[in-house]
């Protein structure tokens, strides 16, 4: 790829661009959630590895660390982890299909009002399925963690 000279970063949106959700459709919301859950899960996994590594300091150290998740806030955190991992996985499967051109439609002759075939009902359904499944998984987790 030819090296392209960088201009001064004047008016480039940077991370602010990620946060703009309204007016761009559900695909943009899904993009934002996918990124957000990805970063969140990465941080969680680093914490998770640290948590499991405490066992090398003995059973007491392990159990005292584990008690952090046995509080109300700990349970709520785990419920968010369940929701994030469910959404990231299901939406990730949708994205794998789209990245290989499946479920996007075929090129044609566009007519006004130009509804893009790549933003079709299959994609929107996939995003909604990911959102609904993550809510259901969080509900299930809530019942397990806070149930009798």
């Amino acid at each position: 790829m030819e090296e392209i000279e960088h201009p001064i970063r004047n008016n480039f949106e940077g991370l602010r661009g990620w946060l703009k959700l309204s007016g761009y459709g559900w695909e943009r919301v899904s993009y934002w959630f996918q990124r957000l859950t990805g970063v969140f899960l990465l941080i969680y996994f680093i914490g998770h590895i640290y948590e499991t590594s405490t066992i090398v300091n003995g059973l007491n150290a392990w159990e005292s660390f584990l008690e952090l998740t046995q509080t109300v806030w700990g349970h709520l955190f785990l419920i968010v982890v369940i929701g994030a991992s469910t959404f990231h996985s299901v939406n990730g499967i949708r994205l794998i299909f789209t990245h290989v051109g499946i479920g996007l439609g075929t090129p044609g002759r566009p007519d006004y009002p130009y509804n893009p075939s790549s933003l079709n009902y299959r994609q929107k359904s996939g995003i909604w399925i990911a959102l609904i499944l993550s809510v259901l998984a969080m509900y299930y987790g809530f019942n397990i963690l806070f149930g009798e």
Binding site: Y24, G25, E27, S30, Y31, L95, T98, S118, L119
Partner: peptide, 9 residues
């Protein structure tokens, strides 16, 4: 990463 905003606008 297929945000789809390009096609939207």
């Amino acid at each position: 990463h297929f945000a789809g905003s390009c096609s939207k606008v």
